[in-house]
Computed example of a mutant assay.
Amino acid sequence: MSEHGCDICGGLGYTVRRTESGELVSSTCKCEIIRQNRIRMERSGLAGLLDNCTFEAFQTREYWQQAAKQAAEKYLTDWKGKWFFIGGSPGTGKTHLCTAICAKLMDGGIPVRYVQWRGDIPAIKAKVNDAEAYTEAMHPLKTVRALYIDDFLKGSVTDADKNIAFDLLNARYIDPDAITIISTELTIDRILSWDEAIGSRINQRARDYMLNIGKKQNWRLK
């Protein structure tokens, strides 16, 4: 690290290179991507979790906790173009592991966004009758390299939720570079029975990293 904060760009936030034709081309530096990630996480309310929800802090007293952690760590060695899905009861560490994954991706310079289904999606649903506003709200979620959807389909689920879920996940499904991380209290079988088109897309892109924890003890209460 240089005295300016970044050994690559010297704190500018971008780098400049000259092409073979002599044209100068600038690109965003990894340090700027990490800074923007932090800003997005702070605005989303996830920033506090990034410091506490690490792999080192994840409890592994039980076999299923060890297996879940190992799967999440393995995902980080094989994440390109793949999704990560974890379904299970409240308190089984879903958000903790997904946040730890996001932190590692961010440290690697991958742009990450966080959306809390029950907290953030209602505002988008309110815009469905305004095509321009709806498109503007959905575009960042559809196009960011890595998207973490927390508590997917939590609460009362309507046809509007189904439409938004399909619109969002289908856009990311057809993008081979899109990384989608999903935590939910539902199993993939429940999602498939609710909507096969949505469930099958999740199942196909996350099939190598599909965790269904089931009803385990809530270790938040310990």
Rank of each mutant, 00 (worst) to 15 (best):
E3S: 12
D7S: 15
G13Q: 02
G13F: 02
T15D: 11
R18A: 03
E20S: 12
S21C: 05
S21T: 12
E23M: 09
L24E: 13
V25Q: 06
S27A: 02
K30M: 03
K30R: 15
I33A: 09
I34F: 06
Q36H: 15
I39N: 12
E42M: 04
G48Q: 11
D51E: 15
E56C: 08
T60S: 05
R61F: 10
Q65W: 13
A68S: 06
A72Y: 12
A72E: 09
Y75A: 11
L76Q: 15
L76E: 15
W83H: 05
F84K: 07
I86G: 03
G87Y: 13
G87C: 12
G93C: 11
H96F: 07
H96I: 04
A100M: 08
I101D: 02
L105C: 09
G108I: 04
P111Y: 04
Q116T: 04
W117E: 08
L141H: 03
V144N: 06
V144M: 06
R145G: 00
Y148M: 13
I149D: 11
D150I: 12
D150G: 07
D151A: 05
D151S: 10
D151P: 06
F152V: 02
L153A: 12
K154R: 14
V157G: 11
V157K: 14
A160D: 15
K162L: 13
I164H: 05
A165Y: 10
A165F: 07
A165W: 14
L168H: 10
N170T: 01
R172T: 12
Y173S: 07
A178K: 05
I179T: 13
T180L: 08
S183T: 15
E185H: 09
L186A: 04
T187E: 09
I188Y: 07
I191K: 06
S193R: 14
W194I: 00
D195I: 01
D195K: 05
S200E: 08
D208S: 14
I213G: 03
I213N: 06
G214I: 06
K215S: 11
K216F: 10
